[in-house]
Amino acid sequence: MAIESQYYLLLSAAIFCIGVYGILTRQNALLFLMSVELMLNAANINLVAFSFYHGNLTGQVFSLFTMALAAAEVAVGIGIVLVLYRNFEDIDVTKAATMRW
């Protein structure tokens, strides 16, 4: 007995909206990174759910690559946060208002 596909979509929408909530309410750059990860993983849940829905493994393989891309994104993101802390002595994203300082 398989779970109906709507509930996978509902879970994915919930996780995605938690990520959007974090980005809209917080000002900490590290919490931004965590929220972006939540949104990426919501997309992964959709990929796996539709992979099962269609009986084709392409979605599952693609979600693996999405996870690898998320790892690369976090590596660069933490580097940017480090530079932000070095230059502003804080990781508040609202303080870095210009591209160049």
């Binding site: 109906e4 596909s5 829905y53």
Partner: peptide, 10 residues
């Protein structure tokens, strides 16, 4: 939305 039953894997 009315989604049909998932096909599942072979």
């Amino acid at each position: 939305s009315d989604v049909s039953a998932p096909a599942g894997f072979a």
